[in-house]
Amino acid sequence: ELIWEQYTVTLQKDSKRGFGIAVSGGRDNPHFENGETSIVISDVLPGGPADGLLQENDRVVMVNGTPMEDVLHSFAVQQLRKSGKVAAIVVKRPRK
């Protein structure tokens, strides 16, 4: 059984690379294997702001206090874009 651990990460936006993450998932883009609608970190740019803080497959729980459960992919992207220079991101990942 999976035990999820929650992490809060504060990312500083890089002028060229943004937050250095890509997200997939969302209500309109469920996971191809299990139908899960979570917003998921799909890519972490090496050397970017999120490197060492976020991991691929982290589930995004909140962005700047806005819940990311059962939202559209575009909504999640929009929340990240409009967060200015700093984003507080809450993620969960299975305990190893």
Score class of each variant (00 low, 15 high):
L80G: 00
T37W: 02
Q79W: 05
V23W: 04
S42T: 15
M62P: 00
S24N: 13
W4T: 06
Q6F: 10
Q79I: 09
S38V: 04
T37K: 14
E1D: 14
L11D: 00
D70K: 08
D43R: 13
A22W: 13
A87L: 13
V44A: 01
F19D: 01
A87P: 02
V91M: 04
N29C: 15
I21T: 00
N29Q: 14
G52R: 05
V86Q: 11
H73M: 13
V60C: 03
S42K: 08
D51Q: 07
D51C: 11
V86F: 09
L54A: 04
L45T: 15
D51L: 04
S38F: 09
V60T: 02
I39P: 02
V44C: 05
I39M: 03
A22G: 12
M68R: 00
K96Y: 11
F32S: 15
F32D: 06
V86N: 11
S24T: 09
S15G: 04
S15V: 12
R93C: 00
T66E: 14
N64P: 00
V44T: 02
K85Q: 13
F19H: 04
T37G: 12
E36L: 08
T66L: 14
P67Y: 14
V9W: 05
Q78I: 08
E5S: 07
D14Q: 04
Q6C: 04
V71M: 05
D14N: 04
R81E: 15
L80C: 02
E1G: 03
F32Q: 15
T37A: 11
R59I: 15
L11W: 00
K85V: 09
V71N: 03
L2K: 07
S24R: 14
S74W: 10
H73G: 07
L53F: 11
V63L: 15
S74Q: 11
E56W: 05
A88C: 14
A50R: 04
S38Y: 08
D14V: 06
A76Q: 00
P30L: 06
P30T: 06
L45M: 09
P46N: 13
I89T: 01
M62Y: 14
E1K: 15
G20V: 02
L54V: 10
Q12T: 15
G52H: 05
L72R: 09
D43T: 13
V61S: 07
S42Q: 11
R59N: 04
P94L: 12
N57L: 08
M68Q: 03
L72K: 11
G47K: 08
L2A: 12
L54M: 12
I39W: 02
G25W: 01
S74E: 14
V90L: 10
G25L: 02
F19V: 02
V63H: 02
V90T: 13
Q78H: 11
F32R: 12
R59C: 04
G35E: 09
P30S: 09
K13G: 06
A50W: 00
D58Y: 01
R81S: 14
A76Y: 04
Q55V: 06
Y7N: 14
K82H: 12
V61E: 11
T8I: 07
N57Q: 13
A88I: 12
M62F: 09
D70V: 02
L45V: 14
K85T: 10
P46T: 15
D70M: 06
L11Q: 01
N34G: 10
K16T: 09
N29G: 15
R27P: 04
L72T: 14
D43W: 15
P30Q: 05
M62Q: 11
E33G: 07
R81T: 13
F75W: 09
P94F: 14
Q79T: 13
V40F: 07
R59F: 03
R27V: 10
L2I: 12
S74M: 13
K82G: 07
V23D: 00
W4S: 06
S83E: 12
T37L: 07
Q6S: 12
D28N: 06
G20M: 01
S42L: 05
R81H: 14
R59M: 05
V23S: 02
T10E: 07
S38T: 08
S24E: 05
T8Q: 12
Q12F: 13
R93K: 05
G84K: 14
Q12M: 10
G25Q: 02
F75K: 06
G18K: 08
N57V: 02
Y7V: 15
K16W: 07
G35V: 03
L72W: 08
S24F: 02
A88P: 04
N57H: 14
E56A: 10
F32A: 12
V9S: 00
G18C: 07
S15I: 07
V9G: 01
P46Y: 04
A50T: 01
L2S: 10
A87F: 02
Q6V: 09
G26T: 03
G25Y: 02
W4K: 04
S42H: 07
D14E: 06
D51V: 10
G65V: 02
M62V: 09
N64G: 05
K96E: 05
V77I: 13
D14G: 15
V71E: 11
N57C: 05
F19K: 01
T10G: 09
G26S: 03
Q78S: 09
G84N: 12
E36F: 04
D70A: 11
